Amino acid sequence: MSLLLDKRELKKAAKELTLAKLNDVLDTLNSVLVERQSEIDAISEIERFAREKGFTLEQLGYKQVQDVMPEESVSVAKESKRPVKPKFKTLNKASQYFYVEDGQLQLLRTHTMKKGLQARGIEVVPVNKVDKKFAKDIERLLDEATEQATANFNSKVVVWNAWAAENGAEILEPR
Rank of each mutant, 00 (worst) to 15 (best):
M1T: 10
R8I: 12
E9R: 14
L10T: 10
K15C: 08
K21E: 13
V34C: 11
S38T: 11
E39G: 07
I43E: 15
S44G: 10
E45N: 08
I46W: 00
R48S: 12
F49N: 12
A50T: 01
A50K: 05
R51T: 10
R51G: 06
G54C: 03
F55N: 03
G61L: 05
Y62P: 06
Q64N: 13
D67N: 11
V68P: 05
V74M: 07
V74S: 06
V74C: 05
E79L: 10
S80N: 13
S80C: 09
R82E: 12
K85F: 00
K87T: 13
K93A: 11
F98N: 01
Y99N: 04
D102N: 12
Q104K: 15
L105V: 04
L105H: 07
Q106L: 12
H111Q: 14
M113K: 12
M113V: 08
L117R: 04
Q118P: 06
R120D: 11
R120H: 07
V127K: 01
D131S: 13
D131A: 12
K132P: 00
F134W: 06
K136T: 05
D137E: 14
I138T: 06
E144V: 13
E144C: 09
A145R: 02
A145C: 05
Q148E: 11
A149Y: 04
N152P: 02
N152R: 12
S155R: 15
W160V: 02
W163K: 01
A165C: 07
A165S: 12
E166I: 02
N167V: 03
A169P: 00
E170G: 04
L172H: 03
L172D: 00
E173V: 14
E173G: 09
P174N: 03
